[in-house]
Design a protein around this nucleic acid. Structure first.
Lengths: 227, 227
DNA sequence: CTCTTTTGTCGTCACTTTGACGATAAGGGT
DNA sequence: ACCCTTATCGTCAAAGTGACGACAAAAGAG
């Protein structure tokens, strides 16, 4: 029995936290189908290219991010017949978490690429093309879940960060305010989550805060609790 | 830009608990490549067929299970170039959890299909063909994780079960003994996990045990703790 | 029919974690 | 100096966990 060939694409849910809110990178499609509409970045996997390599390539093309240090993980694969008018296309979705870049988005491929508040896109299923709304929902939910039991929130931060900044990540992703004192206790007492760097900063105003960097932990036990 | 066509397959990690151990369904391949070797069940997705539909079809073909009530979830997608000698094949892996069937496996497709202890297959990366060892590892880990925070263990049970039987599922999947008294407390006090059916059974020997069925809960909070 | 074995179920207790919140520390701005 | 802001520590009651004692209710042995 032989197989029916299909197109295989890698689509990306690229998230960051800017201005205290969760944002997603969208591109305006320059070609058909759905030309002119907003969509998640993505593209076809090349013949000799690994799936994750394709995702990293797209990520680099859309954001200019040197992708090695960027957290990238597979979310799910979407292959409903008819989801792409070009034919049978199966799309492997990846989730990327990036820090708030000083560098603006400089896409080579995309006619235009923009950071957009995730909440707005989540609220309107027709704001983005194809079945990308579902992909975004799944990607954001994955991110929210992973913050609970993994130290992944640090992927949104610069190399050095304060506990408040980290808390800001959680609050933005979960959309919930957290108690600063309990959060501080929890984070600093969870082994290997963050390690103090020795310096302090006043960039957030108020009393100087200690700077930390991500620790060696790969998961958090016990997990943090969503508001 | 056009796409390079690829084969898309659905592979299945079908797990059950029999004789107090976690077992996985393997088939002996009747055709090349890897003819005669053991592998996970699976096959190519048909042109107009949804991915999950393909997985359910394969599940039905291999196990005879009417698939509607069977828990099936996507695990991940594997698409490394060279993973299949027939060409570029991308495989979407699904995890199925089935109860200990009185019905023996009756595959129409498979030359032979057998339940095999998961521990043995996990221990030897070359026991199964292709990259199926990795798929199995990921599938089993997914199952282990989901037992913690979802009521999914009931998917391994018959419609009605005792707390001990449910505990046996956890012990088999996690490979860890659990305290019967604490387990009983935890399960019965977690809202919506199990609901008493009113009857009792003595099929496990000893004092008659209450029978339960799965409750309406979709997740467990707080979660159960592994070992 | 009584005793023993086996499993089920309830309780107790010390310990940890959580969530709510008071209090103090240490900068900057005026 | 005083106030505002953020950081960080401490306290306390409530809830959850792990260890384990005790009793209940059946089957099987004698």
């Amino acid at each position: 029995m032989d197989f029916e060939p299909m197109g295989v694409a890698a689509d990306l849910v690229i998230l960051t936290v800017r201005d205290g809110e969760l944002q997603v990178l969208l591109i305006r499609r320059g070609i058909e189908p759905h030309k002119g509409r907003w969509a998640l970045p993505g593209g076809f996997v090349r013949p000799a290219e690994d799936l994750e390599a394709a995702a990293r390539r797209e990520l680099a093309e859309e954001t200019g991010l040197v992708s090695d240090r960027i957290h990238l993980e597979q979310v799910a694969t979407y292959g409903e017949p008819g989801r792409d008018p070009r034919g049978r296309v199966v799309s492997v979705a990846y989730l990327a978490l990036v820090p708030d870049l000083p560098t603006p988005v400089a896409g080579t491929d995309a006619a235009s690429a923009r950071w957009v508040a995730a909440s707005g896109v989540l609220a309107d299923p027709d704001r983005i093309a194809f079945d990308h709304h579902r992909i975004l929902v799944d990607g954001v939910e994955r991110a929210r879940a992973k913050l609970e039991y993994s130290p992944l929130a640090t992927a949104f931060c610069a190399d050095e960060f304060t506990i408040s900044e980290l808390r800001g990540i959680y609050e933005a992703v979960w959309g919930t305010p957290l108690d600063p004192r309990n959060f501080h206790r929890k984070v600093t007492r969870t082994d290997g989550f963050v390690v103090p760097v020795g310096a302090t900063t006043t960039r957030d105003g108020g009393r100087p805060a200690q700077l930390f960097q991500r620790g060696p932990a790969t998961f958090l036990y016990p997990p943090l609790n969503r508001g």
